[in-house]
Structures are given as C-alpha cells and as structure tokens.
C-alpha cells in the first residue's frame, strides 16, 4: 500500500509540502505515516501523516475531540495503557517504527517525555519526584542524581524557589510551580522530545505566562509537540502548526505548515474559518 493511496489529505512529510521558509534546518525527528487510532470500534483519528522537526516546536490545534491528545499519546505509546486502543500506521524515530512491538517502551518514554494538562506531581517530596525516575532509569550514583536534579530545576526556573524545601511535599507547590516541576521531572531524564498536552490550560494567567516562557526557552534544545486550544499561544511559541478537524466524526489532519504561514495564509478553507473564529 502506498502512502498516499488510502488517505484524502496529502501527507505532510519532509520535502513534499509548502511550509514556507524553514525556521531552522528541517530535520525530521519523528516521521508520522498514515497514523490511525481507534478506541474499540470507534475511530478517533485517521490517516495522519506529518513530520515533527528536530529542535522545533510543533503546535497541534483544532477543536476539542478531534484526536489531538490521542495523537500525542500514540507518540510515546501511552495508548498501550488500554488494550481496546488500536493504533495503525507507523512513526519513524531513529529509523525505527516506534509503534512496533519490538520497541522497548520504557526507554522510548524516557526519550519522549510527556507533560499533561493537569499538573500531576507525585505525592512525594519535591526531590523524590525527580529522584525516583532517575533511579528507575538506572542512575545509581547519588551525587550524579543530585546534580541532575539541580540542573533540571534550574532549567525550569524553579531552583531558587524550592532549593530550601526540596524535602517538603510537591503537592504544596502552586499550580504553576507544580507544572514546572512536572516539566523538570521530564527534563531530568534528558529526553529528546517533549509532548505537551495543553500544559497551560489548567493554570492561572500569570503561571501560564511563566510556563509559556519556559516552553519557548526549550526551543532549539528539545523537539516539542504541544496541543493547545489557545491560538494566540500557538502563534507565540510554535514554529510549525498542524490543524486537526473532525470529518464524519473522525479526526483528520487538515493542514500542516510553518506556523506563521498557516495562520496568515491558510491553504484550507476550514483552517481559515477556524483561526478566524467562525468555526469550531
């Protein structure tokens, strides 16, 4: 089966599309090919093909329920959690299909971290929130762990705020601090890609701005895929944007391109209508 035969939208893969001038050297970090996803009998996403570029921020936009979050969880195999979820297609990562059974999921998830909508620090101390994943991934040297923890907390700008209470509960932090802690928890494992599912939507405006600034700082060092309903935020942070829409109750990728381009000169009528606020 060829890539294009079964899908109605052109695959947005490297070199095959008009994405405008690249922001950076466009090297595909993930190559999503004809990805479909179903929960039991219900197909939620169909025929999605696109590349995620290394060191760039890719925003997934579109109305609720069109499969953006499902798409995100397929990329680090969190979809495995329920046996009724079926994922088809392929996602190339380092020349390997990360959807294949042969992939070691635990290592994959270390390399592709995920941040959730609601901050979910563990009910442990701040230190142990970062210490536990390190230990579980085989970092046995206590000193090295301490160092990595400090670096991660500095990266997210939390070190100065919590350095004197590392052993108190992470749940006592404010919502914005908790979310930054969760980002630090992902960063401490030195991932290559970060998946973010509306990381700011549960936060107050000020915390949201702090987290957003942090996400922008990650650009260049990490590949970021972010789901957001906040179009202004997508424009501010993202290099690339992918627009998802429901067609006949199934989520589809409608358009993908350089963020600026997609917002200013959308190729598709639906995209234009959505970003101008007349649909969705």
């Amino acid at each position: 089966m060829t890539l294009t035969s079964s899908i109605n939208t052109r695959p947005y893969t490297l070199g095959s599309m008009n994405t405008g001038e690249p922001c950076c050297e466009p090297i595909a970090h993930l190559q999503v090919q004809n990805l479909s996803l179903a929960y039991g009998q219900k197909t939620v996403l169909d025929g999605v093909s696109l590349d995620i570029y290394k060191g760039c921020i890719t925003a997934l936009i579109g109305p609720s329920g069109c499969g953006k979050t499902s798409f995100l969880s397929a990329l680090n195999r969190l979809t495995d959690l329920s046996a009724s979820t079926r994922v088809r297609g392929s996602v190339l990562f380092d020349g390997e299909d990360l959807l294949s059974d042969k992939v070691d999921v635990l290592t994959l998830r270390r390399r592709i971290g995920m941040i959730f909508q609601k901050p979910n620090p563990f009910p442990l101390s701040i230190r142990r929130n970062l210490d536990l994943p390190l230990k579980e991934h085989g970092v046995n040297d206590r000193k090295i762990r301490a160092q990595k923890i400090e670096t991660a907390l500095r990266d997210v700008g939390l070190w100065d705020e919590v350095a004197d209470r590392l052993d108190s509960s992470a749940l006592a932090l404010s919502g914005g601090q908790q979310q930054r802690l969760c980002i630090a928890r992902a960063l401490v494992l030195e991932p290559e890609i970060l998946l973010m599912d509306e990381p700011c939507s549960a936060l107050d405006p000020i915390s949201s701005a702090v987290v957003e600034a942090l996400i922008i700082r990650l650009r260049g060092q990490y590949t970021v895929v972010i789901v957001t309903h906040n179009l202004a935020q997508a424009r501010r942070v993202a290099n690339y944007a992918a627009f998802f829409w429901m067609k006949e109750r199934v989520g589809k990728l409608i358009e993908f391109g350089q963020c600026q381009n997609l917002f200013e000169k959308p190729n598709h009528q639906l995209t234009a209508a959505y970003i101008s606020g007349t649909q969705g």
Partner: peptide
Amino acid sequence: MLNKHIDK
C-alpha cells in the same frame, strides 16, 4: 537498567 523488563 535493572528492572526494565520486570513487568512481564
């Protein structure tokens, strides 16, 4: 990576 495949 002692407990990588411990789940099985």
